[in-house]
Write a protein that binds this DNA or RNA. Structure first.
Length: 580
DNA sequence: GCCGTTTTCGGCCCGACTGTTTTCAGTCG
Protein backbone atom coordinates (compact mmCIF):
# COMPACT_ATOMS: atom_id res chain seq x y z
CA UNK A 1 0.00 0.00 0.00
CA UNK A 2 1.20 3.51 -0.86
CA UNK A 3 2.41 5.91 1.77
CA UNK A 4 -0.30 8.46 0.99
CA UNK A 5 -3.01 5.84 1.49
CA UNK A 6 -1.57 4.80 4.85
CA UNK A 7 -1.46 8.44 5.92
CA UNK A 8 -5.09 8.94 4.85
CA UNK A 9 -6.22 5.84 6.74
CA UNK A 10 -4.39 6.81 9.94
CA UNK A 11 -5.98 10.25 9.80
CA UNK A 12 -9.34 8.69 9.14
CA UNK A 13 -8.93 6.34 12.11
CA UNK A 14 -8.13 9.36 14.27
CA UNK A 15 -11.34 11.06 13.21
CA UNK A 16 -13.41 7.89 13.61
CA UNK A 17 -12.10 7.43 17.14
CA UNK A 18 -12.76 11.08 17.88
CA UNK A 19 -16.39 10.76 16.81
CA UNK A 20 -16.67 7.61 18.89
CA UNK A 21 -15.63 9.68 21.87
CA UNK A 22 -12.29 7.94 22.39
CA UNK A 23 -9.64 9.35 24.71
CA UNK A 24 -8.15 12.40 22.99
CA UNK A 25 -4.59 11.31 23.62
CA UNK A 26 -5.23 8.04 21.93
CA UNK A 27 -6.76 9.92 19.03
CA UNK A 28 -3.75 12.17 18.83
CA UNK A 29 -1.47 9.18 18.67
CA UNK A 30 -3.06 8.27 15.32
CA UNK A 31 -2.83 11.82 13.97
CA UNK A 32 0.77 12.03 15.10
CA UNK A 33 1.60 8.73 13.45
CA UNK A 34 -0.04 9.95 10.23
CA UNK A 35 2.11 13.05 10.26
CA UNK A 36 5.26 11.13 11.05
CA UNK A 37 4.64 8.78 8.13
CA UNK A 38 3.73 11.66 5.82
CA UNK A 39 6.95 13.49 6.61
CA UNK A 40 9.02 10.38 6.25
CA UNK A 41 11.74 11.12 3.74
CA UNK A 42 12.21 7.47 2.84
CA UNK A 43 10.02 4.81 1.30
CA UNK A 44 7.52 3.53 3.84
CA UNK A 45 7.86 -0.05 2.59
CA UNK A 46 11.61 0.11 3.15
CA UNK A 47 11.14 1.44 6.67
CA UNK A 48 8.71 -1.37 7.44
CA UNK A 49 10.95 -4.03 5.91
CA UNK A 50 14.05 -2.86 7.76
CA UNK A 51 12.29 -2.77 11.12
CA UNK A 52 12.92 0.97 11.57
CA UNK A 53 9.21 1.69 11.86
CA UNK A 54 9.00 0.99 15.60
CA UNK A 55 11.93 3.29 16.23
CA UNK A 56 10.07 6.32 14.90
CA UNK A 57 8.93 8.76 17.53
CA UNK A 58 5.28 8.28 18.42
CA UNK A 59 5.00 4.80 16.95
CA UNK A 60 4.84 2.10 19.59
CA UNK A 61 3.94 -1.57 19.43
CA UNK A 62 0.27 -1.12 18.52
CA UNK A 63 0.77 1.39 15.75
CA UNK A 64 3.77 -0.46 14.41
CA UNK A 65 1.72 -3.62 14.04
CA UNK A 66 -1.23 -1.85 12.45
CA UNK A 67 0.90 0.08 9.97
CA UNK A 68 2.90 -3.02 9.12
CA UNK A 69 -0.30 -4.92 8.42
CA UNK A 70 -1.54 -2.10 6.19
CA UNK A 71 1.68 -1.87 4.23
CA UNK A 72 2.25 -5.58 3.78
CA UNK A 73 -1.32 -6.85 3.25
CA UNK A 74 -2.97 -3.72 1.91
CA UNK A 75 -5.74 -3.84 4.50
CA UNK A 76 -6.51 -3.69 8.19
CA UNK A 77 -9.61 -5.58 9.41
CA UNK A 78 -9.79 -3.56 12.64
CA UNK A 79 -10.07 -0.38 10.60
CA UNK A 80 -12.68 -1.89 8.28
CA UNK A 81 -14.83 -2.77 11.30
CA UNK A 82 -14.39 0.69 12.77
CA UNK A 83 -15.43 2.27 9.49
CA UNK A 84 -18.67 0.27 9.36
CA UNK A 85 -19.85 1.85 12.59
CA UNK A 86 -19.67 5.42 11.35
CA UNK A 87 -21.11 6.89 8.13
CA UNK A 88 -18.69 8.66 5.79
CA UNK A 89 -20.88 11.77 5.60
CA UNK A 90 -19.96 12.71 9.16
CA UNK A 91 -16.52 13.70 7.89
CA UNK A 92 -17.98 16.44 5.72
CA UNK A 93 -19.97 17.70 8.72
CA UNK A 94 -16.74 18.12 10.68
CA UNK A 95 -15.64 20.73 8.16
CA UNK A 96 -18.41 23.05 9.35
CA UNK A 97 -16.96 25.73 11.63
CA UNK A 98 -18.13 25.20 15.17
CA UNK A 99 -18.88 21.52 14.70
CA UNK A 100 -16.50 19.08 16.31
CA UNK A 101 -16.70 15.36 16.94
CA UNK A 102 -19.02 15.65 19.93
CA UNK A 103 -21.63 17.77 18.23
CA UNK A 104 -21.45 15.73 15.04
CA UNK A 105 -22.02 12.56 17.03
CA UNK A 106 -24.97 14.14 18.84
CA UNK A 107 -26.52 15.19 15.53
CA UNK A 108 -26.11 11.66 14.21
CA UNK A 109 -27.33 9.88 17.34
CA UNK A 110 -30.29 12.13 18.05
CA UNK A 111 -31.48 13.14 14.59
CA UNK A 112 -29.86 10.58 12.30
CA UNK A 113 -28.09 13.35 10.37
CA UNK A 114 -25.17 11.93 8.41
CA UNK A 115 -24.39 14.44 5.67
CA UNK A 116 -24.36 18.16 4.93
CA UNK A 117 -27.63 18.21 2.99
CA UNK A 118 -29.54 16.60 5.84
CA UNK A 119 -27.85 18.92 8.29
CA UNK A 120 -28.88 21.98 6.32
CA UNK A 121 -32.46 20.76 6.04
CA UNK A 122 -32.67 20.00 9.78
CA UNK A 123 -31.34 23.46 10.61
CA UNK A 124 -33.89 25.06 8.32
CA UNK A 125 -36.67 23.11 10.03
CA UNK A 126 -35.39 24.32 13.40
CA UNK A 127 -34.77 20.82 14.73
CA UNK A 128 -31.13 21.33 15.54
CA UNK A 129 -31.81 24.21 17.95
CA UNK A 130 -33.92 21.92 20.12
CA UNK A 131 -31.11 19.45 20.79
CA UNK A 132 -29.46 19.45 24.19
CA UNK A 133 -26.28 21.53 24.08
CA UNK A 134 -27.40 23.26 20.89
CA UNK A 135 -29.41 26.45 20.53
CA UNK A 136 -30.71 28.93 18.00
CA UNK A 137 -27.34 30.62 17.67
CA UNK A 138 -25.54 27.34 17.06
CA UNK A 139 -28.10 26.46 14.42
CA UNK A 140 -27.55 29.77 12.65
CA UNK A 141 -23.78 29.33 12.82
CA UNK A 142 -24.07 25.89 11.28
CA UNK A 143 -26.04 27.28 8.35
CA UNK A 144 -23.43 30.01 7.89
CA UNK A 145 -20.69 27.40 8.13
CA UNK A 146 -22.29 25.27 5.42
CA UNK A 147 -22.57 28.31 3.18
CA UNK A 148 -18.92 29.19 3.84
CA UNK A 149 -17.83 25.70 2.82
CA UNK A 150 -19.79 26.08 -0.39
CA UNK A 151 -18.03 29.38 -1.10
CA UNK A 152 -14.48 28.52 -0.06
CA UNK A 153 -13.88 24.96 0.94
CA UNK A 154 -10.36 24.36 -0.14
CA UNK A 155 -6.78 25.44 0.29
CA UNK A 156 -5.06 27.78 -2.12
CA UNK A 157 -1.51 27.86 -3.42
CA UNK A 158 0.99 30.11 -1.68
CA UNK A 159 1.34 32.36 -4.73
CA UNK A 160 -2.39 33.06 -4.64
CA UNK A 161 -2.37 34.13 -1.00
CA UNK A 162 1.07 35.60 -0.34
CA UNK A 163 0.97 38.70 -2.57
CA UNK A 164 -2.42 39.83 -1.33
CA UNK A 165 -1.55 39.03 2.29
CA UNK A 166 1.64 41.07 1.96
CA UNK A 167 -0.24 43.99 0.49
CA UNK A 168 -2.60 43.92 3.49
CA UNK A 169 0.41 43.95 5.81
CA UNK A 170 2.03 46.83 3.95
CA UNK A 171 -1.14 48.92 4.03
CA UNK A 172 -1.58 48.40 7.76
CA UNK A 173 2.09 49.06 8.41
CA UNK A 174 1.57 52.64 7.24
CA UNK A 175 -0.75 53.34 10.14
CA UNK A 176 0.82 55.28 13.03
CA UNK A 177 -1.12 53.13 15.52
CA UNK A 178 0.69 49.99 14.32
CA UNK A 179 3.83 49.29 16.34
CA UNK A 180 4.86 45.89 14.97
CA UNK A 181 3.22 43.77 12.29
CA UNK A 182 3.95 40.32 10.87
CA UNK A 183 2.34 37.66 8.77
CA UNK A 184 1.85 34.49 10.84
CA UNK A 185 0.62 30.96 10.30
CA UNK A 186 1.42 28.74 7.36
CA UNK A 187 2.15 31.77 5.17
CA UNK A 188 5.00 32.83 7.43
CA UNK A 189 6.23 29.25 7.41
CA UNK A 190 5.86 29.38 3.62
CA UNK A 191 3.88 26.20 3.26
CA UNK A 192 3.14 25.37 -0.37
CA UNK A 193 -0.62 25.59 0.17
CA UNK A 194 -2.51 27.54 2.80
CA UNK A 195 -5.97 27.61 4.32
CA UNK A 196 -6.15 31.11 5.76
CA UNK A 197 -4.21 34.32 6.27
CA UNK A 198 -3.09 35.31 9.77
CA UNK A 199 -1.79 38.78 10.52
CA UNK A 200 -0.50 39.89 13.91
CA UNK A 201 -0.17 43.51 15.00
CA UNK A 202 0.97 45.12 18.21
CA UNK A 203 -0.69 48.36 19.15
CA UNK A 204 -2.15 50.30 22.04
CA UNK A 205 -5.06 51.42 19.84
CA UNK A 206 -6.70 48.48 18.04
CA UNK A 207 -9.95 50.12 16.89
CA UNK A 208 -8.69 52.24 13.98
CA UNK A 209 -6.60 49.28 12.76
CA UNK A 210 -9.60 46.97 12.75
CA UNK A 211 -11.63 49.62 10.95
CA UNK A 212 -8.99 50.03 8.28
CA UNK A 213 -8.48 46.27 7.88
CA UNK A 214 -12.07 45.50 6.89
CA UNK A 215 -11.94 48.17 4.16
CA UNK A 216 -8.73 47.01 2.49
CA UNK A 217 -8.78 45.85 -1.14
CA UNK A 218 -9.48 42.12 -1.43
CA UNK A 219 -11.76 41.98 1.59
CA UNK A 220 -15.20 40.92 0.37
CA UNK A 221 -16.99 40.14 3.62
CA UNK A 222 -16.60 40.80 7.33
CA UNK A 223 -17.29 37.76 9.46
CA UNK A 224 -16.70 39.24 12.87
CA UNK A 225 -14.90 42.14 14.44
CA UNK A 226 -13.78 42.72 18.00
CA UNK A 227 -11.11 44.42 20.02
CA UNK A 228 -8.50 41.66 19.71
CA UNK A 229 -9.51 39.82 16.56
CA UNK A 230 -11.22 40.58 13.28
CA UNK A 231 -12.11 37.94 10.69
CA UNK A 232 -12.85 38.64 7.06
CA UNK A 233 -13.24 36.78 3.80
CA UNK A 234 -10.62 37.56 1.19
CA UNK A 235 -10.89 37.05 -2.56
CA UNK A 236 -7.55 35.72 -3.81
CA UNK A 237 -8.81 34.47 -7.17
CA UNK A 238 -7.60 35.57 -10.58
CA UNK A 239 -9.76 38.30 -12.13
CA UNK A 240 -13.21 36.92 -12.82
CA UNK A 241 -12.58 33.75 -10.85
CA UNK A 242 -13.60 34.13 -7.25
CA UNK A 243 -11.50 32.15 -4.79
CA UNK A 244 -12.29 32.90 -1.17
CA UNK A 245 -10.24 32.30 1.93
CA UNK A 246 -10.43 33.42 5.52
CA UNK A 247 -8.18 36.15 6.92
CA UNK A 248 -7.73 36.97 10.60
CA UNK A 249 -6.17 40.08 12.06
CA UNK A 250 -5.12 39.96 15.71
CA UNK A 251 -3.99 42.94 17.74
CA UNK A 252 -2.03 42.50 20.97
CA UNK A 253 -0.01 44.77 23.23
CA UNK A 254 3.60 45.27 22.19
CA UNK A 255 4.76 43.43 25.28
CA UNK A 256 2.86 40.31 24.20
CA UNK A 257 3.90 40.53 20.57
CA UNK A 258 6.87 38.08 20.57
CA UNK A 259 4.87 35.40 22.39
CA UNK A 260 1.84 35.84 20.15
CA UNK A 261 4.03 35.87 17.04
CA UNK A 262 5.59 32.56 17.96
CA UNK A 263 2.24 31.09 18.98
CA UNK A 264 0.38 32.07 15.82
CA UNK A 265 3.23 31.16 13.50
CA UNK A 266 3.05 27.55 14.64
CA UNK A 267 3.10 24.95 13.53
CA UNK A 268 0.83 23.54 16.15
CA UNK A 269 3.13 20.55 16.48
CA UNK A 270 6.18 22.76 16.84
CA UNK A 271 4.40 24.67 19.62
CA UNK A 272 3.52 21.46 21.43
CA UNK A 273 7.13 20.31 21.34
CA UNK A 274 8.37 23.72 22.50
CA UNK A 275 5.90 23.81 25.37
CA UNK A 276 6.47 20.25 26.53
CA UNK A 277 10.19 20.87 26.51
CA UNK A 278 9.93 24.14 28.46
CA UNK A 279 7.69 22.40 30.98
CA UNK A 280 9.95 19.35 31.39
CA UNK A 281 13.28 21.12 31.40
CA UNK A 282 12.58 24.37 33.23
CA UNK A 283 9.08 24.05 34.65
CA UNK A 284 8.09 26.97 32.45
CA UNK A 285 4.67 27.48 30.92
CA UNK A 286 4.60 29.00 27.44
CA UNK A 287 1.44 30.65 26.25
CA UNK A 288 0.59 33.15 23.55
CA UNK A 289 1.08 35.93 26.12
CA UNK A 290 4.02 34.93 28.24
CA UNK A 291 6.51 32.47 29.58
CA UNK A 292 5.70 31.87 33.23
CA UNK A 293 7.57 30.04 35.95
CA UNK A 294 6.41 29.36 39.48
CA UNK A 295 7.34 32.83 40.65
CA UNK A 296 8.78 34.62 37.68
CA UNK A 297 7.54 35.79 34.32
CA UNK A 298 10.10 36.03 31.54
CA UNK A 299 10.09 39.17 29.40
CA UNK A 300 11.45 39.12 25.87
CA UNK A 301 11.72 41.83 23.26
CA UNK A 302 11.46 39.66 20.17
CA UNK A 303 11.21 36.09 18.93
CA UNK A 304 14.97 35.56 18.94
CA UNK A 305 15.02 36.47 22.63
CA UNK A 306 12.15 34.06 23.24
CA UNK A 307 14.19 31.16 21.87
CA UNK A 308 17.24 32.32 23.75
CA UNK A 309 15.33 32.44 27.02
CA UNK A 310 14.56 28.75 26.53
CA UNK A 311 18.16 27.82 25.80
CA UNK A 312 17.59 27.54 22.07
CA UNK A 313 19.13 29.19 19.07
CA UNK A 314 16.73 30.97 16.72
CA UNK A 315 14.62 28.70 14.57
CA UNK A 316 13.49 30.29 11.28
CA UNK A 317 9.71 30.02 10.73
CA UNK A 318 10.14 27.76 7.70
CA UNK A 319 11.73 25.10 9.90
CA UNK A 320 9.00 25.04 12.53
CA UNK A 321 7.30 21.81 11.54
CA UNK A 322 8.44 19.67 14.46
CA UNK A 323 10.75 17.57 12.37
CA UNK A 324 13.69 17.81 14.73
CA UNK A 325 14.35 21.55 14.63
CA UNK A 326 14.00 22.01 18.39
CA UNK A 327 16.66 19.37 19.10
CA UNK A 328 18.92 21.08 16.59
CA UNK A 329 18.35 24.47 18.23
CA UNK A 330 19.18 22.97 21.60
CA UNK A 331 22.56 21.86 20.28
CA UNK A 332 23.09 25.20 18.57
CA UNK A 333 23.15 23.46 15.19
CA UNK A 334 20.42 25.29 13.30
CA UNK A 335 21.73 25.64 9.75
CA UNK A 336 22.24 29.05 8.16
CA UNK A 337 19.48 28.78 5.60
CA UNK A 338 19.78 29.87 2.01
CA UNK A 339 18.34 33.27 1.09
CA UNK A 340 17.07 34.75 -2.15
CA UNK A 341 20.13 36.97 -2.39
CA UNK A 342 22.36 33.87 -2.55
CA UNK A 343 21.02 32.94 -5.98
CA UNK A 344 23.32 33.96 -8.85
CA UNK A 345 21.27 32.65 -11.77
CA UNK A 346 18.74 30.01 -12.84
CA UNK A 347 18.80 27.20 -15.36
CA UNK A 348 15.42 25.86 -16.33
CA UNK A 349 13.69 28.54 -18.42
CA UNK A 350 11.77 28.67 -21.67
CA UNK A 351 11.69 31.14 -24.55
CA UNK A 352 9.39 31.51 -27.51
CA UNK A 353 11.57 28.94 -29.27
CA UNK A 354 9.34 26.42 -27.51
CA UNK A 355 6.40 27.31 -25.24
CA UNK A 356 7.72 30.47 -23.57
CA UNK A 357 6.28 33.92 -24.24
CA UNK A 358 9.45 36.01 -24.36
CA UNK A 359 12.37 36.02 -26.76
CA UNK A 360 15.85 34.85 -25.86
CA UNK A 361 17.05 38.45 -25.67
CA UNK A 362 14.17 39.53 -23.48
CA UNK A 363 14.76 36.68 -21.04
CA UNK A 364 18.49 37.43 -20.86
CA UNK A 365 17.87 41.12 -20.33
CA UNK A 366 15.34 40.43 -17.57
CA UNK A 367 17.79 38.12 -15.80
CA UNK A 368 20.52 40.74 -16.05
CA UNK A 369 18.22 43.38 -14.64
CA UNK A 370 17.46 41.11 -11.70
CA UNK A 371 21.16 41.08 -10.92
CA UNK A 372 21.77 37.49 -12.01
CA UNK A 373 25.20 36.59 -13.35
CA UNK A 374 23.85 33.99 -15.72
CA UNK A 375 20.71 32.55 -17.24
CA UNK A 376 20.21 29.03 -18.47
CA UNK A 377 17.84 28.40 -21.35
CA UNK A 378 16.20 25.01 -21.43
CA UNK A 379 13.54 24.84 -24.08
CA UNK A 380 11.56 21.68 -24.65
CA UNK A 381 12.93 18.77 -26.66
CA UNK A 382 11.62 17.42 -29.93
CA UNK A 383 9.04 14.87 -28.83
CA UNK A 384 7.09 17.37 -26.76
CA UNK A 385 5.23 18.68 -29.77
CA UNK A 386 2.41 20.23 -27.73
CA UNK A 387 4.98 22.62 -26.28
CA UNK A 388 6.62 23.33 -29.62
CA UNK A 389 9.57 21.09 -28.77
CA UNK A 390 12.74 21.79 -30.69
CA UNK A 391 14.02 19.68 -33.55
CA UNK A 392 17.76 19.04 -33.77
CA UNK A 393 17.87 21.57 -36.59
CA UNK A 394 16.30 24.29 -34.45
CA UNK A 395 18.54 23.43 -31.52
CA UNK A 396 21.55 24.30 -33.68
CA UNK A 397 20.01 27.61 -34.69
CA UNK A 398 19.14 28.56 -31.14
CA UNK A 399 22.62 27.70 -29.94
CA UNK A 400 24.13 29.91 -32.65
CA UNK A 401 21.88 32.72 -31.51
CA UNK A 402 22.96 32.25 -27.90
CA UNK A 403 26.61 32.31 -28.92
CA UNK A 404 26.03 35.58 -30.76
CA UNK A 405 24.13 37.02 -27.81
CA UNK A 406 26.90 36.11 -25.38
CA UNK A 407 29.40 38.20 -27.36
CA UNK A 408 27.46 41.29 -26.30
CA UNK A 409 27.68 40.57 -22.58
CA UNK A 410 30.33 41.28 -20.05
CA UNK A 411 29.99 39.67 -16.63
CA UNK A 412 26.83 37.91 -17.75
CA UNK A 413 26.38 34.67 -19.61
CA UNK A 414 23.57 32.69 -21.22
CA UNK A 415 24.06 28.94 -20.89
CA UNK A 416 22.87 26.64 -23.63
CA UNK A 417 20.64 24.03 -22.12
CA UNK A 418 17.69 21.83 -22.83
CA UNK A 419 14.74 20.55 -20.90
CA UNK A 420 14.99 17.18 -22.50
CA UNK A 421 12.20 14.63 -22.17
CA UNK A 422 12.88 11.35 -20.47
CA UNK A 423 11.26 8.88 -22.87
CA UNK A 424 9.16 6.02 -21.47
CA UNK A 425 12.13 3.62 -21.55
CA UNK A 426 14.40 6.07 -19.73
CA UNK A 427 16.37 7.10 -22.77
CA UNK A 428 16.69 10.75 -23.67
CA UNK A 429 14.81 12.61 -26.38
CA UNK A 430 18.01 13.59 -28.28
CA UNK A 431 20.88 11.37 -29.38
CA UNK A 432 24.16 11.61 -27.44
CA UNK A 433 25.92 13.75 -30.04
CA UNK A 434 23.18 16.37 -29.76
CA UNK A 435 23.08 16.20 -25.95
CA UNK A 436 26.83 16.83 -25.96
CA UNK A 437 26.31 20.21 -27.64
CA UNK A 438 24.50 21.66 -24.61
CA UNK A 439 26.25 23.24 -21.63
CA UNK A 440 23.83 21.31 -19.45
CA UNK A 441 20.71 19.17 -19.70
CA UNK A 442 17.60 19.18 -17.49
CA UNK A 443 15.91 15.79 -17.79
CA UNK A 444 12.14 15.74 -17.22
CA UNK A 445 9.19 13.38 -17.51
CA UNK A 446 6.29 14.78 -19.52
CA UNK A 447 4.54 11.67 -20.75
CA UNK A 448 3.33 8.19 -19.74
CA UNK A 449 2.54 9.27 -16.20
CA UNK A 450 0.61 6.06 -15.71
CA UNK A 451 3.61 3.74 -15.62
CA UNK A 452 3.96 1.52 -12.57
CA UNK A 453 6.12 2.74 -9.75
CA UNK A 454 8.81 0.23 -10.70
CA UNK A 455 8.78 1.30 -14.36
CA UNK A 456 8.82 4.99 -13.51
CA UNK A 457 11.61 4.58 -10.96
CA UNK A 458 13.75 2.60 -13.40
CA UNK A 459 12.99 5.14 -16.13
CA UNK A 460 14.07 8.13 -14.06
CA UNK A 461 17.10 6.41 -12.57
CA UNK A 462 18.28 5.54 -16.05
CA UNK A 463 18.07 9.21 -16.98
CA UNK A 464 19.78 10.30 -13.76
CA UNK A 465 22.68 7.96 -14.56
CA UNK A 466 22.98 9.23 -18.13
CA UNK A 467 26.31 11.10 -18.19
CA UNK A 468 24.80 13.85 -20.37
CA UNK A 469 22.11 14.65 -17.82
CA UNK A 470 23.10 17.49 -15.50
CA UNK A 471 19.96 17.78 -13.43
CA UNK A 472 16.61 16.11 -12.93
CA UNK A 473 13.59 18.38 -13.53
CA UNK A 474 10.39 18.37 -11.43
CA UNK A 475 10.95 15.00 -9.81
CA UNK A 476 7.34 13.83 -9.37
CA UNK A 477 5.36 15.93 -11.84
CA UNK A 478 2.81 16.86 -9.21
CA UNK A 479 0.48 19.83 -9.67
CA UNK A 480 -0.54 21.13 -6.26
CA UNK A 481 -4.26 20.87 -5.48
CA UNK A 482 -4.81 19.45 -8.96
CA UNK A 483 -2.94 16.25 -9.61
CA UNK A 484 -0.73 13.89 -7.63
CA UNK A 485 2.70 13.20 -8.96
CA UNK A 486 3.48 10.00 -10.79
CA UNK A 487 4.38 7.05 -8.60
CA UNK A 488 8.13 6.92 -8.13
CA UNK A 489 10.53 5.70 -5.47
CA UNK A 490 12.20 9.02 -4.68
CA UNK A 491 14.57 7.45 -2.18
CA UNK A 492 16.00 5.26 -4.94
CA UNK A 493 16.15 8.23 -7.32
CA UNK A 494 17.94 10.41 -4.78
CA UNK A 495 20.41 7.65 -4.00
CA UNK A 496 21.11 7.24 -7.70
CA UNK A 497 21.58 11.01 -8.00
CA UNK A 498 23.96 11.00 -5.05
CA UNK A 499 25.98 8.23 -6.70
CA UNK A 500 26.20 9.78 -10.14
CA UNK A 501 26.54 13.38 -8.96
CA UNK A 502 23.43 14.39 -10.86
CA UNK A 503 21.68 17.45 -9.47
CA UNK A 504 18.01 17.52 -8.56
CA UNK A 505 15.85 20.53 -9.29
CA UNK A 506 13.52 22.32 -6.95
CA UNK A 507 11.02 23.47 -9.53
CA UNK A 508 9.85 26.82 -8.19
CA UNK A 509 6.63 27.06 -10.19
CA UNK A 510 4.13 27.53 -7.35
CA UNK A 511 1.91 24.85 -8.84
CA UNK A 512 4.78 22.34 -8.61
CA UNK A 513 7.29 23.08 -5.80
CA UNK A 514 8.74 19.71 -6.65
CA UNK A 515 11.15 18.36 -5.24
CA UNK A 516 9.18 18.97 -2.07
CA UNK A 517 10.76 20.17 1.16
CA UNK A 518 10.64 16.79 2.90
CA UNK A 519 12.76 15.21 0.20
CA UNK A 520 15.04 18.25 0.14
CA UNK A 521 16.03 17.29 3.67
CA UNK A 522 16.70 13.74 2.53
CA UNK A 523 18.63 14.93 -0.54
CA UNK A 524 20.79 17.10 1.68
CA UNK A 525 21.50 14.15 3.97
CA UNK A 526 22.49 12.02 0.98
CA UNK A 527 24.75 14.77 -0.37
CA UNK A 528 22.70 15.43 -3.49
CA UNK A 529 23.26 18.88 -5.01
CA UNK A 530 19.99 20.76 -5.49
CA UNK A 531 19.24 23.55 -7.92
CA UNK A 532 16.41 26.09 -7.72
CA UNK A 533 14.77 26.74 -11.08
CA UNK A 534 11.78 28.97 -11.83
CA UNK A 535 10.81 27.05 -14.99
CA UNK A 536 10.00 30.53 -16.30
CA UNK A 537 7.82 30.82 -19.38
CA UNK A 538 8.01 34.62 -19.40
CA UNK A 539 10.31 37.32 -18.04
CA UNK A 540 8.00 37.94 -15.10
CA UNK A 541 8.18 34.31 -14.06
CA UNK A 542 11.92 34.48 -13.41
CA UNK A 543 10.93 35.90 -10.01
CA UNK A 544 9.18 32.67 -9.14
CA UNK A 545 12.56 31.32 -8.04
CA UNK A 546 11.70 32.89 -4.69
CA UNK A 547 9.10 30.21 -4.04
CA UNK A 548 11.90 27.71 -4.58
CA UNK A 549 13.91 29.49 -1.89
CA UNK A 550 10.96 28.95 0.46
CA UNK A 551 10.97 25.22 -0.26
CA UNK A 552 14.74 25.06 0.19
CA UNK A 553 14.51 26.79 3.55
CA UNK A 554 11.75 24.45 4.65
CA UNK A 555 14.10 21.67 3.58
CA UNK A 556 16.89 23.06 5.82
CA UNK A 557 19.11 23.82 2.82
CA UNK A 558 22.15 26.02 3.13
CA UNK A 559 23.73 27.96 0.26
CA UNK A 560 26.29 25.20 -0.25
CA UNK A 561 23.52 22.65 -0.95
CA UNK A 562 22.22 24.65 -3.91
CA UNK A 563 24.19 24.77 -7.15
CA UNK A 564 22.97 28.13 -8.40
CA UNK A 565 24.38 29.96 -5.42
CA UNK A 566 27.67 29.55 -7.27
CA UNK A 567 29.22 32.34 -9.27
CA UNK A 568 29.37 32.42 -13.05
CA UNK A 569 33.00 31.32 -13.06
CA UNK A 570 32.32 28.43 -10.72
CA UNK A 571 29.37 27.29 -12.81
CA UNK A 572 31.40 27.45 -16.02
CA UNK A 573 34.14 25.44 -14.38
CA UNK A 574 31.70 22.82 -13.14
CA UNK A 575 30.03 22.41 -16.54
CA UNK A 576 33.44 22.10 -18.17
CA UNK A 577 34.48 19.47 -15.62
CA UNK A 578 31.38 17.44 -16.40
CA UNK A 579 32.19 17.47 -20.12
CA UNK A 580 35.45 15.63 -19.56
C1' DG B 1 -1.74 4.95 22.19
C1' DC B 2 2.92 6.69 23.54
C1' DC B 3 6.54 7.47 26.70
C1' DG B 4 10.17 7.66 30.70
C1' DT B 5 18.73 9.51 33.70
C1' DT B 6 13.60 11.12 38.89
C1' DT B 7 8.39 7.51 36.32
C1' DT B 8 6.48 0.87 33.30
C1' DC B 9 1.70 4.21 35.51
C1' DG B 10 -0.01 8.57 34.97
C1' DG B 11 0.75 11.96 32.69
C1' DC B 12 0.11 13.95 27.72
C1' DC B 13 0.44 22.42 25.50
C1' DC B 14 -2.31 26.24 26.39
C1' DG B 15 -5.67 29.80 26.54
C1' DA B 16 -9.69 32.15 24.39
C1' DC B 17 -14.10 32.14 22.81
C1' DT B 18 -18.86 30.73 22.28
C1' DG B 19 -23.10 29.38 23.59
C1' DT B 20 -25.56 27.20 26.58
C1' DT B 21 -25.17 27.03 30.97
C1' DT B 22 -26.05 28.29 36.46
C1' DT B 23 -20.29 26.36 36.55
C1' DC B 24 -18.84 24.31 31.95
C1' DA B 25 -18.25 21.48 27.55
C1' DG B 26 -16.92 21.87 23.03
C1' DT B 27 -14.29 23.97 19.57
C1' DC B 28 -10.43 26.39 17.71
C1' DG B 29 -5.79 27.72 16.57
Amino acid sequence: MLKQQVVAILNEIGTLLEIQGENMFKVRAYYNAARTIEQLDKELSDVVASGELGELRGIGDTLREKITTLVTTGQLPWYEDLKKKIPQGLFSMLRVAGLGPKKVKALYDELGIDDLDKLKAACERGEVAKLKGFGVKTQEKILEGIEFIRLTGSRVRIDQALPIAMSLVEELRKMPEVQRIELCGSLRRRRETIKDVDILVSSAKPEPIMERFVKLPGVVQVIGTGETKTSVVLDVGAPGRQQLINADLRVVSDEHFPFALHHFTGSKEHNITMRSRAQDKFGLKISEYSIEGDSKSIKVKDEAALFKALGLSYIPPEMREDTGEVDLAEKGQVPTLIEASDIKGVFHNHTNWSDGKATLEEMAEAARTMGFQYLGIGDHSQSLTVANGMSVERVKKQQAQIDALNKKFKNFHVFKGSECDILPDGSMDYPDDVLATFDYVVASVHSHFGQTKEEMTARIIKAVRNPHVTMLGHATGRLLLMRDGYQVDLEAVLQAAAQSGTMVEINAQPSRLDLDWIHCKRAKALGVMLVINPDAHSTGELFLFRYGIDVARRGWLEPGNVFNTRSLEEVKKEFARRKK
